[in-house]
Design a protein around this nucleic acid. Structure first.
Lengths: 132, 132
DNA sequence: GTAACTCGGTCTCAGATAGAGACTGGTCGG
DNA sequence: CCGACCAGTCTCTATCTGAGACCGAGTTAC
């Protein structure tokens, strides 16, 4: 696998920088984006702009607390735009920024891999559980 | 963006299944693989097989506890192979399985995106912090 | 000879983090 | 007049994480 060597090479490069979170993209970016909700939210927003409560209905398992927090982080990272219109009741719409949209490509690659190999993983998990 | 629509379409599909973690790959797989250490470990193992203590030296920030736990999860998911030779002192070598190696492709895409846009994100973060 | 270090972990305890769900305040429908 | 809806915040608890001590046998350093 070529990608494997490329990944390895990149890792060794970060290594030399002591894996400093300010220099290593995996630690600085993927740590955050890779949490339980960020990827799911980015997928939900890929469909189009959504309001806070619409997102909450789409993903009922997330608590309002984490929904707020995750959206704020994504906003701070410049992946999501937060549009507040101070009407009554308030209306807040979230949408992907161009940066956020540019993330859809790599994310789609990941998701497709996950879809393809998910059955295999589930089977391995089941076997492991039986062995234990 | 085409990838954007594709992502959105996938999300709506999972939606119909109630985002069940057993059916939605993002929840079932990326939740786990996307934690702080898994991606980093996969990168480290992309270079080649490594022993437990070698991995710990490569990534000193991880505690032994989390290193054990993360490797066990990756093993249960079939991404990593654990090879124990009961010598004295014991020798345990971890390596990527074919499945793990097949993950290098999509992961590399993600990492390259992260590298490319990391400066922009850092800048946005800094601006957000200044505004606050 | 004996003190220190290695191997790959496990264990405990404290601190950080996530989730559940009540609450806000103003405005609308019935 | 009672409740729902908007976008959150707040508090309390449950879970998770990290730091670091400890294991036992063998190997090395002094």
């Amino acid at each position: 696998m070529d990608a494997c060597k490329a990944l390895g090479a990149k890792f060794e490069l970060w290594q030399t920088a002591g894996l400093d979170p300010d220099r290593c993209p995996v630690r600085g970016l993927l740590d955050q984006i890779g949490d339980r909700w960020s990827t799911l939210l980015l997928c939900a927003l890929a469909v189009g702009p959504r309001r806070f409560s619409a997102l909450h209905r789409l993903i009922p398992d997330i608590s309002k607390r984490m929904l707020t927090q995750t959206l704020r982080t994504l906003e701070a990272d410049g992946l999501v735009h937060r549009d507040v219109r101070p009407t009554v009741p308030p209306s807040v719409t979230y949408s992907l920024t161009p940066l956020g949209r540019s993330f859809a490509g790599p994310l789609l690659g990941l998701v497709e891999w996950a879809e393809t190999h998910f059955p295999a993983v589930l089977q391995t998990r089941a076997e492991t559980k039986r062995a234990a």
